[in-house]
Write a protein that binds this DNA or RNA. Structure first.
Lengths: 228, 228
DNA sequence: CGATAGATTATGCGATCACAAAAAATCAGA
DNA sequence: TCTGATTTTTTGTGATCGCATAATCTATCG
């Protein structure tokens, strides 16, 4: 007799260490815990995570393959600083991919998906009214990817994910700050209308609204963001 | 005295092994040397390349991060098989990204770039007339990326590269074959007209032609490709 | 005090080892 | 000969070691 699972549910599919490290780092990036320009050395991280170098190296190289990290000439990994031109480039590419995904999401969004989407939209407006930036960003991510995941295109979804992996660390720069005048950007949100259009099956309108949403986020951050 | 370079020219910036392995594998993928469904084990590859496992592991994980390889449940890497739905998905996403890049390339293409583009277009038609599939695919890649590289958007270019990394291994299935009736697809090429439109500065028309090119390649492969 | 040479530390990189699980091969019995 | 169990091999994974270079610190001298 081997180590069979006595009950129906198997174990939580013990992931390899390098996978866990990757997820930790990815989450740390996307939640703004790492400052742009920060150097990430495998030994330091390994010591902090209580592993050896190897899993950390793997995770770092994967992140770098996705352009979430930059590699210095000597091989060190850093979270790239955000310049105006890079930000502009990334947002322009987002404007190509994300409205296209929204346009296709109408067919993939079933009733349950629309219900969930509306719930997230409510939480989103609530976070906006509460001036809770962290919750806003979290729900914003949740909202958009609930749409994109329904676009029926794994490859497009993957491209969008890599874009967010590059923009994410920068978006989080306001995380925890309270002295910014975010009321403007937080107030006007098209999310409710986007849901409405999706419910109506009007993907074109939803895509247009989403593009406006991205553009206004772009304008706001070009105004108020801290670039290098 | 250390290992200084006696002359002005330094070494060819000796790349780390894992980088060389990565390039080798990437090239092997894109030139159809690896059959879809093939399992790539780090030890076998390491033995073949004369290195240890580690650089190979790194390279494989980077490729997998870009979805150029799939990971089995036990961690083995395989070149994913191409299904009709996956191919359809990838080509649809190409249709989103690549015309957009072409549209933007008009501003980034200087005289020298246009000259080079026309040269590649000539080589492309020559390869088509010679029924030289390998040369055709090579120049086709060269042609398209000469355009995309001029789109001024590193992020969009990167997305397109990851898409090609996934489609490439499949496109090469005709490599070396001569008994297929490729005259149809090889004959009608929009490349010359694309160059002409780009020279005229009409990015919109170039994008439209490029979309047609992609669509017809898609139709051809859906008809004649070997899917799983 | 400041700059430079030397020493020390940090770091990327690659090889090797060990272990467990999976896959493959071999063998025994019907 | 076919099937099923057992052994052997393969393979992913992670840790440790050593080397060379880069970065940092220190100390000495002008």
């Amino acid at each position: 007799m081997s180590s069979q699972t006595p009950f129906g549910l198997g174990p939580i599919a013990a992931q390899p260490l390098h996978e866990q490290v990757y997820e930790r780092l990815r989450h740390a990036l996307m939640s703004g815990q790492i400052a742009p320009g920060r150097k990430l050395t495998s030994r330091k991280l390994a010591a902090e995570l209580g592993t050896s170098d190897m899993p950390v190296r793997s995770a770092l190289m994967r992140l770098q393959a996705l352009h979430a990290l930059d590699q210095l000439a000597n091989g060190s990994m850093i979270l790239p600083a955000m310049t105006r031109t890079r930000f502009s480039d990334l947002m322009t590419t987002r404007l190509i991919c994300e409205p296209a995904a929204a346009r296709r999401a109408v067919d993939g969004l079933d009733r349950a998906g629309l219900v969930k989407l509306r719930q997230v939209a409510v939480a989103l407006t609530a976070a906006a009214e509460d001036q809770d930036i962290d919750a806003y960003l979290l729900h914003n991510h949740d909202f958009k990817f609930s749409i994109y995941a329904a676009c029926g295109s794994p490859s497009l979804l993957f491209l969008i994910e890599t874009l967010w992996l590059q923009v994410g660390p920068f978006l989080r720069q306001f995380s925890g700050q309270f002295d910014n005048d975010l009321r403007g950007i937080l107030a006007l949100d098209y999310h409710d209308e986007i849901v409405r259009r999706l419910e109506e099956g009007d993907g074109e309108a939803a895509a247009g609204l989403l593009a406006r949403d991205i553009r206004e986020g772009y304008d706001f951050l070009m105004q108020n963001g801290q670039f290098e």
